[in-house]
Amino acid sequence: MGNYMACMGSKQKKKNSKLNMSGMRRRGPLEDELIEKQALAMALHQQHKAQLRFERSLSHRDPATAPPRRSYSGKPSSGKLEYTRSASTRPRHSNDLLIDPQQLLNGTREGFLAATLESKHFVLVHGGGLGAWCWYKSIALLEESGFVATAVDLAGSGIEPTDPNQITSLAQYVKPLVEILENLAGTEKVILVGHNIGGGCISYVMECFPNRIAKAIFVAASMVCTGQRAFDVFAKQEKGEEDLMPKAQKFIYGNGNASTPTAVELDKSLVRDLFFNASPAKDIALATVSMRPIPFAPAMEKITLTPENYGRVRRFFIETTDDQALSPAAQQNIITQNPPQQVFSLKGSDHSPFFSKPQSLHKIFLEIAQLEAKE
Rank of each mutant, 00 (worst) to 15 (best):
S10A: 15
S17V: 05
K18N: 11
L19P: 03
L34A: 15
M42Y: 11
H45F: 14
Q46N: 15
Q47M: 12
K49P: 06
L52S: 05
F54D: 04
S57W: 04
T65I: 02
A66Y: 10
P67I: 10
Y72T: 09
G79Y: 05
G79P: 06
K80D: 14
Y83T: 09
S86I: 12
A87S: 09
R90L: 13
R90V: 11
P91T: 10
L97A: 10
L97G: 04
Q103D: 05
G107S: 10
T108H: 14
L113K: 01
S119N: 06
H121V: 03
H121W: 06
V125Y: 01
L130H: 13
Y136T: 14
S138I: 03
A140Q: 09
E143V: 10
E143C: 11
D153W: 05
L154W: 00
I159L: 12
T162V: 14
D163Q: 08
I167M: 04
K175I: 03
K175F: 04
P176K: 06
L181T: 03
K189W: 03
V193I: 04
G194C: 09
G194F: 01
M206W: 06
E207G: 01
E207C: 00
C208N: 00
P210V: 00
A214S: 14
K215Q: 11
K215W: 03
A220V: 00
M223W: 06
G227E: 07
G227Q: 09
R229Q: 12
F234H: 04
A235I: 04
A235L: 06
K236R: 15
G240C: 09
A248S: 12
I252R: 04
A258Q: 07
S259Q: 13
S269I: 09
P280I: 01
P280A: 02
A281Q: 06
S290D: 01
S290T: 07
R292W: 02
I294E: 08
P298D: 08
K302Q: 12
I303R: 01
L305T: 05
T306W: 07
T306M: 10
P307H: 10
N309R: 15
R312P: 09
V313R: 09
T321E: 08
A325Y: 03
L326F: 01
L326S: 03
N333C: 15
I335K: 05
T336K: 15
Q337D: 14
N338V: 12
P340K: 00
P340R: 02
Q341G: 06
L346I: 08
G348C: 09
H351C: 02
S352G: 06
S352Q: 01
F354Y: 14
F354K: 03
K357F: 00
L366W: 04
I368T: 03
I368F: 04
Q370D: 10
E372P: 05
K374M: 13
E375R: 14
E375G: 15
